[in-house]
Design a protein around this nucleic acid. Structure first.
Length: 983
DNA sequence: ACCGCCGGGTGCC
DNA sequence: ACCGCCGGGTGCC
């Protein structure tokens, strides 16, 4: 315990943390954690500059000084050990005091006062980072020398030298190896003495070389000892593929590992850190976890579920009860003891996330839910016991009698809340013997059982789907979805679950409410951050919230471990609690700077760090010479369509009108203010390419927002937001640069994520301006998106009109009929962004006698499941066509029965198309996949293709390049608009 | 001797 | 600290 305290103290000790956490208020004690929380408001705006500083830092020079007062402190150091210098402005004897701490954060002594007087100003004004190494004399009783390196931006160099001079100090030039602590060790470690260490960036590697080294960083990590395989426990309903068994074996071995963490060695009764030269008696804890960085589609979620079920303790499976299915039917519903698993909610139409709402349906009818998976299906699933004696420890079974149960509460619904069961009993294995004991409400006590999974909202429903798919229905696994305003606030209830699933937003929101985060009161068996790269910003609330969760097994699941640079890795490493990297100073000194400066060995270190905690396979990775995923070929064809004379006329007239309006916006310089209107024009043109009826009645929203009543203004903003969201442009939030979550629209008609824009308002206070157009920004002016399930700008109810075809529909029907003639059993997806268009296509399908099904975002889960199962079925008479809306379903959606895809209209974002194609071109696909994109000649669609290609190129080269700024995004958008409408 | 010198007490910031 | 510094004791050779 005290060690934890010390460590937290250490976090506050480094200069980096002073900058970050204390900002302008350095009179606060840095080790007081709640204090730093209160200061977050300051730190957000304060940090961005600092971080860039550390990136562009050069070495000014070095200086030898002395550390005094050793005998008053417990912190000890070794020769050549790194030390941290920390200002101590509240020292009662000297306001210039500078503390010296060892790597562990224990104070070693103080900088001698004359020198401290010179350093104080430099440190307080952040003119330089000062790093120390004790070259020798570490065992002295009273004082010891310290070799200091001064790092800072070029423009501050003079000021620093000046300040030192005024106190009678002069920096030695940064010459010999000893000054550059990282360089010296690595050079001298290789071949004798070194004569000049690299001082300026990129001496060894050009930025381009660095980038490609990053690319390689995660490759080829599997060929060493990561090829063992392990079968999943009995409760895993799905047969794991070889690479998934490897991942499982690796994860289990990580969790049960007794190894020292990377860069630690045992040396004569001490544990020695080879990077910092820090040593301690206490064995440093290894991460019982790591980073699972497999590419999309390799089954990270399944592997994680398998891990949860397979490795409860020491390789024993999660003790869940297996129940005969007939017994299950008898007992469910009557056994109130297990009612924790049966929180029933009334209805589900109001949910924010369609996927979640659907699950709740299942909630209300658990029996029906379990029948969602046909019995026959379950029977088909192979059962296999876990490796060796795993999986058959009957004595560990729970006294519970339910299948997988979900507990869901959601905003806006009065749930039937049953008091959490306290009489729940379970058998717990202790010291080799089994005993029945009452579960104490200790928020897990010393015997945690619960895995916490944190994921973005967007994949919440995917997790639920995957639980459903991969947890054998004969096993009772308690799963609680910690989401929605009705979520249980009872930590002891949470700690009784097997799995608690929540989102980053919930995690951060809870954490923000000081002292009242149930998630932070539980000691978890295991914490899994899905899409873990979302915590790469160390200052974000969700990152801090994740870092402060309690639990030893810690996993990061991500397909993109490094997005821009090494910097992104720190949050992940810090979350994993790898000593000494939890403190940013040590990460920076030992890894980040050596790597970004191209110091010899820097990359080597990073690589061995990554290698020891990461597993990554790409779709092209190979196992024993065979690709991990052996997918059939995929071909994309573009089928051009020519509009009829009549269609062309309508198209041209709408285009002419829209072009005139947009030209006017350009000449007025109001393009961005009318962004939604422009999207509207483009949307109508895209609809006209599909079918003239799609855009009838699409009200041309008024182009001026002045002189309106508040109600009118509200209406207009809502409709503009809907337009943006439904236009298929896949708008990104200009703040986080990712897909919109909880979209809100500003008075100036720009759409952002709600949390993002609130963060802007919070940090800029009164002067907040729209990030896109710099208009006044007020929280009370923001308009939220009304929750109405599927947003669809095109108007439905036109079924009374007489049906007419269109050029595109003709082209589709021609292709479908041809396909039916050549391959009668082939199944295909007909994909469009416009559900109305899908409805129009239903007519000719019926006329031509096609059996088809349909899947779009507005359908209830039950119907979706039906549609999917129906389509996937291989029975004679099953549908051969599925009408699919482009964005329906999550990444988990599996439509492998289809071998043909007809994309009726191009998507704004090529990634959305690719994702859609992946729903059939994925694991389990037996045939080559042919995709046909219908594109209208000489139309906005053709221009969209060009933009798509550009975006693809951009994405391919985007690995190490920096994020575009808001203004760059603006520029890109303007260019896109011009290209789309031929301006 | 308003000095020098001696030797004990003492010691971060 | 086997140092420096402080301040009290002391005082020719």
């Amino acid at each position: 315990m005290s060690c934890r305290k010390l460590r937290d103290g250490a976090r506050g000790c480094s200069q980096y943390n002073i900058y970050r956490e204390e900002g302008n208020c350095s009179h606060f004690s840095s080790s007081d954690f709640s204090t730093s929380l209160e200061l977050e408001g300051f730190s957000v705006s304060d940090t961005s500059g600092t971080e860039e500083d550390t990136d562009s830092a050069v070495l000014y020079g070095t200086l030898r000084g002395s550390v005094v007062g050793l005998r008053y402190y417990t912190g000890i150091v070794n020769n050549n050990e790194m030390v941290a210098l920390q200002r101590e402005p509240n020292n009662p004897y000297d306001k210039n005091a500078v503390k010296v701490n060892n790597v562990n954060g224990d104070q070693v002594g103080h900088i001698k006062k004359e020198l401290a007087a010179a350093l104080a100003g430099i440190m307080d004004n952040k003119l330089a980072l000062i790093e120390g190494v004790v070259p020798y004399g570490a065992k002295n009783a009273f004082t010891m020398p310290v070799q200091m390196s001064f790092w800072g931006r070029e423009e501050n160099k003079e000021a620093v030298l000046d300040q030192l001079k005024r106190h009678g100090f002069k920096l030695a030039p940064p010459l010999k190896g000893s000054e550059c602590d990282f360089a010296s060790k690595w050079i001298s470690g290789r071949a004798g003495p070194s004569y000049s260490a690299p001082v300026h960036a990129a001496v060894q590697l050009t930025p381009e070389q660095l980038k490609s080294e990053f690319d390689k960083l995660f490759e080829d990590l599997k060929e060493d000892d990561k090829t063992c395989e392990l079968e999943g426990a009995e409760a895993v309903a799905t047969l794991l593929l070889p690479h998934q068994k490897q991942a499982l074996a690796w994860m289990v071995s990580r969790e049960n590992s007794n190894d020292l963490p990377p860069f630690w060695e045992e040396r004569s009764n001490f544990y020695y850190n080879t990077l910092t030269n820090f040593a301690e008696k206490k064995r440093p804890k290894n991460v019982l976890g790591g980073i699972l960085a497999d590419d999309m589609g390799l089954g990270k979620t399944l592997t994680t579920i398998a891990l949860i079920l397979t490795n409860f303790q020491d390789g024993k499976p999660l003790p869940v009860q297996k129940i005969p299915s007939d017994k299950f039917y008898e007992e469910s519903g009557t056994n109130s003891m297990n009612s924790v698993g049966r929180r029933l909610c009334k209805d589900s139409n109001n949910m924010m996330d369609p996927g979640v709402s659907n699950i709740k349906k299942l909630e209300t009818a658990p029996l029906k839910y379990s029948s969602c998976l046909p019995k026959s299906d379950a029977a088909k699933k192979p059962r296999y016991s876990g490796s060796s004696d795993l999986g058959k420890s009957e004595d560990l079974l729970l006294q519970q009698t339910k299948t997988t149960s979900f507990v869901i509460q959601d905003p806006g619904f009065a749930s039937v809340l049953l008091p959490p069961s306290t009489s729940l009993k379970r058998r717990t294995k202790r010291k080799g013997t089994t005993s029945i004991q009452s579960v104490e409400k200790k928020y897990s006590g010393d015997d945690p059982r619960t895995t916490l999974i944190v994921c973005p909202v967007s994949v919440l429903s995917n997790w639920i789907d995957q639980f459903e798919q991969h947890i054998h229905q004969d096993f009772h696994v308690n799963i609680y979805i910690y989401y929605g305003s009705d979520r249980s606030r009872d930590p002891s209830f949470l700690s009784e679950q097997d799995i608690v699933l929540t989102t980053y937003n919930i995690l951060a929101t809870d954490y923000g409410m000081k002292g009242d985060s149930p998630l932070h009161k539980v000691t978890w068996l295991r914490i899994v951050l899905d899409e873990g790269h979302t915590i790469r910003n160390p200052n974000a609330q969700q990152t801090k919230a994740a870092l402060n969760l309690d639990g030893h097994r810690r996993w990061v699941i991500t397909g993109t471990p490094i997005q821009n640079s090494v910097k992104d890795l720190w949050s992940l490493i810090s979350f994993l609690k790898l000593k000494p990297f939890t403190d940013r100073e040590w990460w920076h000194r030992t890894i980040q700077r050596p790597v970004t400066m191209g110091a010899p060995g820097g990359l080597g270190r990073l690589q061995s760090l990554i290698r020891s905690i990461t597993l990554r396979r790409t779709k092209t990775s190979k196992i024993k010479g065979k690709p991990v995923l052996d997918l059939p070929a995929r071909k994309v064809l573009i089928q051009y369509v020519t509009l009829t004379e009549e269609e062309r006329q309508i198209y041209q007239s709408v285009k002419k009108e829209g072009k005139a309006a947009i030209s006017r916006f350009f000449s007025e310089g109001t393009v961005l203010a009318h962004y939604a209107d422009i999207l509207g024009v483009l949307l109508r043109l895209r609809q006209l390419c599909c079918h003239p009826r799609l855009c009838i009645n699409t009200s041309s929203s008024s182009f001026t927002a002045d002189s309106k009543t508040p109600e009118e203004l509200h209406e207009i903003l809502v409709s503009k937001m809907k337009l943006v969201l439904s236009s298929g442009s896949d708008e990104e939030c200009a703040v986080c640069l990712e897909s919109l979550t909880l979209p809100v629209i500003t008075r100036c008609a720009h759409v952002f994520c709600r949390p993002c824009i609130f963060e802007v308002i919070r940090s800029e206070q009164r002067n907040a301006k729209c990030p896109l157009c710099r208009s006044e920004l007020r929280a009370e002016h923001l308009v939220e998106c009304p929750l109405e399930g599927e947003i669809d700008s095109s108007n439905e109810k036109k079924s009374d009109q007489e049906w007419i075809s269109s050029s595109k529909i003709n082209a589709l029907m021609h292709a479908l009929i041809e396909l039916r003639r050549d391959e009668p059993t082939a199944k295909c997806l007909v994909v469009s962004q416009f559900t109305t268009f899908l409805s129009l296509i239903e007519n000719p399908l019926k006329e031509s006698g096609f059996t088809f099904t349909r899947l779009d975002g507005s359908m209830a889960q039950k119907k979706r499941v039906e549609a999917i199962q129906c389509f996937q079925s291989s029975q004679a008479g099953s549908p051969t066509v599925m009408l699919l809306s482009l964005k329906a379903g999550g990444v988990g959606l599996n439509l492998t029965a289809a071998s043909r895809v007809f994309l009726m209209d191009p998507a704004w974002n090529p990634a959305a198309e690719d994702q859609c194609f992946d729903r059939c071109h994925r694991l389990g696909q037996q045939h080559n996949v042919v995709i046909t994109k219908f594109i209208v000649k000489d139309s906005v669609e053709e221009n969209m293709l060009k933009i798509q290609n550009k975006k693809r190129e951009l994405a391919a080269g985007a690995f190490a390049t920096n994020k575009p700024s808001a203004s760059e995004i603006k520029q890109t958008k303007i260019k896109e608009i011009k290209a789309l409408i031929d301006l």
